[in-house]
Design a protein around this nucleic acid. Structure first.
Ligand SMILES: [Mn+2]
Ligand SMILES: [Mn+2]
Ligand SMILES: [Mn+2]
Ligand SMILES: [Mn+2]
Lengths: 218, 218
DNA sequence: AAGAAAAATTAGGCGAGCCTAATATTATAG
DNA sequence: CTATAATATTAGGCTCGCCTAATTTTTCTT
């Protein structure tokens, strides 16, 4: 059984590998965990002994297969709990992350299996992030950033890359929800503002920062 | 915010006070927590500084009002989670305690409020134990041990004093569930075996040990 | 290729929560 | 009332997961 600290390291390393290719740097991990580099070096030596990470002194590190599976297990729990909090308890999508950060460390395979079934085996969490199945397999879904679309093209809004409360609340405010169809009407050369056509013909203008945080599929 | 260790101390002290009157002994607490006495002394000094317990060196200790309310909060969370696990996820009543031991340490008032509402404000947990409300008030319900009943009397089975899996499974096996009406048909002088009449006229013979672990109301 | 800057590691320390062994206090029995 | 047993506390130590400061290694700049 891994400690909560170890599990947080595993998850953070996994996400860094996803985002920036294979090898992860001590400094990057320290930054996302909000922990000093010396502490990270400490912990990685221990996790290396446990065969959770492959550690090359002063070179960087990556998860072993064992570490990768453990990380996916934590992510699965985090996202399933988020679905529970939103779908069953009625939390808003911007409120659930912190609570799921705690719930993801509950140790019980039986619990997570039953929760998964109770939620009817959801494929994505409230933020559109994919939920790996019990075997650790993600149902792959191709998506692109809205910012990469050209005027005239459209697609379905299926995820966000910014999970902050501020951003999620902003989306609520402009009336944009997961699953909505979005059409890019115009991209202003000068300031890179995007004019979008939402369902119900409503048109909104958003900044590049926003367009670059919206994932579009199909 | 209290640590999980502190919360476990609070809960254990609360239960010892309930069972054996006011003052609690270091040895008793060490025993139920499965921890050495020296460690308990250590921790109690810290909790005393935090005004969670009133500690009298070499005399014993008891919860302060602050400590009592904190303890009840943990018990409330434990029992609500047990209801969730049984009613919503389909766990058996003998499977939920260990998982609830973990879930009770999740910190979120909002979560517990919403869970309570989702479960429709249950008054008792799967073992018949009362669930304090959000203000920490227990709905008192008078109950007596089946072993204290005389032949001919009857009542409703509303709780257990033994929460072990072995005992709960035994009750399942003889077909006894919370809420059932039980009539004492006979008490054998010689070995103190109880002959009970269950619903559907089924008659079972149980030992004193069993009769002394069943709570009867009404 | 050398010096400066950035990144990483080592060394030493700290608090939480536990341990064992030694000592002190309180209760019990003769 | 004293001797012994039971309880409780103190002293010293350990692991985990973090810290700061010092040092080393790697990368960047010129
Ligand atoms: Mn999240
Ligand atoms: Mn999410
Ligand atoms: Mn329980
Ligand atoms: Mn219970």
């Amino acid at each position: 059984m891994h400690s909560s600290a170890e599990e947080n390291y595993l998850k953070a390393i996994y996400k860094l590998q996803e985002a920036n290719g294979e090898m992860v740097a001590t400094s990057a991990l320290a930054q996302v965990l909000g922990i000093h580099m010396a502490s990270v070096t400490d912990m990685l030596k221990k996790m290396s002994t446990k065969k959770l990470v492959a550690y090359q002194k002063s070179k960087g590190f990556k998860l072993t297969e064992k570490g990768r599976l453990a990380a996916i297990g934590i992510i699965r729990k985090h996202r399933l709990w988020e679905v529970f909090l939103v779908d069953k308890l009625g939390f808003r999508w911007d409120e659930v992350h912190e609570i799921a950060e705690q719930l993801e460390h509950i140790h019980s395979q039986d619990l997570i299996d039953k929760l998964d079934a109770y939620l009817d085996f959801p494929k994505t969490d409230p933020h559109g992030d994919p939920i790996p199945d019990a075997k650790g397999i993600f149902a792959i879904s191709k998506s692109v950033l809205l910012a990469s679309l050209t005027p005239g093209s459209q697609g379905k809004f299926t995820g966000v890359t910014d999970h902050s409360s501020a951003f999620l609340n902003y989306l609520d405010k402009i009336g944009l929800s997961l699953g909505d169809t979005i059409k890019v009407k115009e991209v202003e050369e000068f300031d890179k503002n995007y004019t979008l056509l939402l369902k119900g013909k409503k048109s909104v203008v958003v900044s590049f920062k926003v367009a670059n945080s919206l994932l579009i599929s199909e």
